[in-house]
Design a protein around this nucleic acid. Structure first.
Length: 268
DNA sequence: GGAGATGTTTCAAG
DNA sequence: GCTTGAAACATCTC
């Protein structure tokens, strides 16, 4: 599930804990989630600290705690963040639980592709890797020029696959990449090197637009995406292209290891 | 039982 | 050093 907008949504799920002190930390020490840092270090590092703020950047999230502790989270394929009452029973897939006065913040992930880091810093600044993340697709530094250079760097890579590269397009995931290709009527398997300058331009525009639209629609309460989007049709067998007057049956096929959906009529 | 799932990392080859 | 492409990771659901 987690792409740009869903990550932003997830980050906000822990907002009720802002300003609250972590009284107890529960972990699953053997979980794969703790491959970057031992669970004990996370328990020690977060106990008695207050959650100060949270940030999202592409698919990455950062939670700032008092005293310069920075908790980085990535949801992988199946990670979830939520708040629960204190009497909620611990479940097998809860990897991190932060118990506060009247609630607990939970990170669960059954497939365990998620990732967790914790860094304690003296100077109050976020970890360097966080500051060096590539420009957000909704921000001012995601320029046409930067995008064009990135496209030209990987001429053999199919456009859809290129859009999944987090170095170029942080936050773009499988459905958004398909949505972008569909919106501008380019087949997802088109090699980057075969795109015209005008097409490269339209990819840039669509990427910005769809990023912004996705954030707007998912919003604070998982808004429903418009029926006019490819996304709302892509998983149905025999799904129909939602473009006006098209009505072609959508195709789903593997492209470089990811399920890809496109319209054989619009995208040629 | 097998295939597939809205993601990243790693490794080998050119 | 770079790009490219496949496999691995772990578990649940259909």
């Amino acid at each position: 599930m987690p792409e740009l907008a869903e990550v932003e949504y997830s980050r906000k799920q822990w907002n009720p804990g802002i300003g609250e002190i972590v009284r107890e930390v529960r972990t699953h020490p053997k979980s794969r989630i703790y491959r970057e840092i031992p669970a004990v270090a996370v328990e020690k590092g977060l106990t008695n600290r207050a959650l100060v703020a949270s940030y999202a950047h592409g698919k990455q999230m950062m939670f700032e705690f008092s005293g310069g502790a920075w908790l980085g989270l990535h949801l992988g394929m199946t990670g979830k963040l939520f708040v629960a009452e204190l009497d909620r029973k611990e479940e097998k897939r809860d990897h991190l639980i932060l118990r506060m006065k009247e609630q607990q913040l939970i990170f669960s992930d059954y497939r365990m592709f998620g990732k967790l880091t914790l860094e304690l810093r003296d100077d109050g600044s976020p970890p360097p890797w966080w500051q060096e993340l590539p420009p957000q697709t909704t921000g001012p530094d995601f320029t046409k020029k930067r995008h064009a250079a990135f496209v030209k760097r990987f001429p053999k890579t199919p456009l859809k696959t290129l859009l999944l590269d987090q170095r170029g397009y942080p936050g773009i995931g499988n459905w958004m990449a398909d949505e972008i290709c569909w919106r501008i009527s380019i087949p997802p398997h088109t090699r980057s090197g075969e795109l015209t300058d005008a097409q490269i331009d339209s990819v840039w525009k669509a990427t910005r637009q769809i990023s912004r639209d996705a954030l707007k629609h998912v919003g604070d309460n998982w808004g429903v995406l418009p029926k006019s989007w490819l996304m709302t049709h892509r998983w149905k067998d025999g799904g129909i292209c939602p473009r006006k007057h098209c009505k072609a049956e959508l195709i789903r096929a593997d492209l470089r290891g990811r399920t890809t959906c496109w319209c054989p009529s619009c995208q040629r």
